[in-house]
Design a protein around this nucleic acid. Structure first.
Lengths: 353, 353
DNA sequence: CTTAGCACTCCACCTTTAGGAGTGCCAGAC
DNA sequence: GTCTGGCACTCCTAAAGGTGGAGTGCTAAG
């Protein structure tokens, strides 16, 4: 593991090796590497260099007499410094653009983005949906369903719609509900969710007699909905089945864990949130993510924005041996497109009622 | 394949054989069957009977000298006439009940039901969500998002909320939108979706000058939303990963197809719709479903109701070798529970505004 | 009609055996 | 020095036997 700097030649060799391995998925030997990358030195020389690279921990042999395979460290070096990020083909970009119609509500857009990611990378796509806390509150609506069941509809400035059925203690007439909603809306429209929430908590604590009964009920109902803010299923995953195609993930045990991770979503959520905080494209190679279930995988993420503010993250999950080159471009472009599509219509909500 | 009626003895034997195969998952031979089911005759006799059963197409040998395995026909006979459907354990029922809280909105209930199915059967659970066409229309709401973007919120009598962003040609003030919604609601509240749709089509065709401009816009907007009725993603699937645990599904090719089917959902949808039309518990064994992707699987479905009307279907997908016994009970109970939970609050919507 | 016995079949598992791909190292060439 | 050809060695893979067990079908006797 002596950390002598790499010579240009060994860099070039490492790059060629990783690229070949990504394509073929099998340990690459000196002879085939020379041929494939049309190097001007002999297999023996390549072997010497490979030995050095192995000593540095960048590649390894699965066993004595197989070719070499990149280690996580090798991949890391590769993506950090060796990657020639050729831009996506124009065709691909057009393809992506076409399939992300900018006139849609956020939910559809997000699902479309996830589907796109998985479709064009042939891997699994994930999108972390915007957290409500960062978005503004636009309007609240109460609606009687039956005797003791009120449907609360909450609209964010982004056009997201949340709804929940609550069971208030007493019965309200539709007129009462209407009035309550009006009062609530005029008090809070346009505020951020955190603001509204804090304000609600304060209002409930005060228990002031001054507050009208009706307003108080409205606040209570609203609080019930806002209280659930953290819930929901703010992660869209698609194309998990694509991962079945990779022989390196065929291990039943690993596969099960991986799919469970997709199902539980918890690890992925943490990972995406973590990478949202950092901003910019992030690449987690193998165990770097820190989650055992994702250990045989790499994850490439990029944040997306609404009105210049980062609100979520999207990404791709695939085997460590993925075409980082291509995937990075795709994730990048998709993030931009989604940002554009979302920003386009997240304009100042007009609530001039 | 001579269709001589089975003797009681061969029935009993078939039953024992299938039950053992379901548990062990391996071809069962005469000797082990005698031991396991403590039969009072000898392996040789069993072999004779087995030969008969094989001739009838109820069982088969994977190869010359393996035990016997049920055929689809065998399973069919088994579930049709041999199944001793012992009721679920009280514990299990309580478990199910607890996890299906009856005070929830439909969407949550449905997701919970799907999760429950997969969780307690350790297979994949699916729920076909109610088709809007069968439900009533309760209320429509228009909301300005930005200059040319209007959020349309549609509430069904069941408490389901649908929303979509549309882009009308001209800009409307919030007051206009409010008025339009009011007019629309008073005209259509409580009608069935099909009625409303037909009426909308008629209204648009007439192109009557008599109709107010505003009302016309409202109708157009509403039509856009109603027109999309068929869309959406009316199928909830959970626990696909559970199927990874079954060795008989380990075939990479089959597995891929199966997961693709879960992803595309089209086959499953058709199957569920088909079984909704029939009503009652339905069991599709292997290829019976008619969908190649589901060929190595069996599907058990039951419809669920709201207010006594069948509105959807739920079910379980697993390997042909599943504990039909148990799965049927679970599907049945879950359907009942879901019906109950949904019916409980699908009362007459009060829209006395 | 049932059963014990027996010959036979076929798979699953293990071992063996090549064959090949690749390495490491050394000694000579540039 | 650095590169290269050569060579012995390692280890995997795939195919080729070999063995044992589980199971069957058949037959002949109870």
């Amino acid at each position: 593991m002596s950390m002598v700097a790499l010579t240009p030649r060994s860099e070039r060799l490492l790059k060629a090796l990783i690229e070949q391995y990504i394509v073929e998925g099998q340990p690459v030997g000196s002879r085939s590497l020379v041929k494939q990358a049309s190097l001007e030195f002999s297999p023996a020389t390549v072997r010497n260099i490979m030995a050095d690279l192995e000593e540095m921990g960048l590649i390894r042999s699965p066993h004595t007499s197989a070719g070499r395979v990149p280690t996580e460290l090798g991949y890391r070096l590769f993506v950090n410094t060796l990657l020639t990020s050729q831009p996506l083909e124009a065709v691909d970009i057009r393809d992506l653009e076409e399939q992300l119609p900018s006139h849609q509500d956020p939910q559809h857009l997000i699902e479309a983005a996830s589907g796109l990611l998985s479709q064009v990378t042939k891997l699994a796509g994930v999108v972390r949906v915007p957290r409500r806390a960062h978005s503004g509150f636009l309007q609240l609506e109460f609606l009687n369903l039956s005797a003791h069941r009120v449907l609360v509809i909450l609209v964010t400035q982004g056009g997201q719609v949340l709804n929940r059925v609550i069971q208030p203690k007493r019965r309200y007439s539709s007129a009462e509900l209407q009035e309550a909603a009006n009062m609530f809306n005029s008090a809070y429209a346009g505020r951020s969710f955190e603001e509204v929430r804090r304000s609600l908590v304060r209002a409930l604590e005060q228990d002031s007699e001054a507050m009208q009964k009706l307003m108080r009920s409205a606040v209570e109902m609203a609080h019930e909905v806002f209280g659930e803010s953290a819930e929901g299923d703010p992660l869209v995953v698609s194309g998990e089945a694509n991962l079945l195609a990779f022989p390196e993930l065929s291990d039943r045990e690993k596969l099960k864990r991986l799919f469970d991770a997709f199902n539980a979503k918890q690890d992925l959520l943490s990972l995406l949130d973590q990478s949202m905080a950092v901003g910019g494209i992030q690449i987690f190679i193998g165990g770097e993510s820190g989650y055992e279930s994702l250990e045989p995988c790499s994850v490439v993420t990029a944040p997306y924005e609404v009105d210049g503010k980062i609100v979520g993250t999207l990404g791709v999950v695939g085997p460590t041996r993925m075409s980082y080159n291509r995937v990075i471009s795709i994730v990048d472009v998709t993030a931009r497109l989604l940002s554009g599509a979302l920003t386009h219509h997240a304009g100042h909500g007009t609530n001039d009622a």
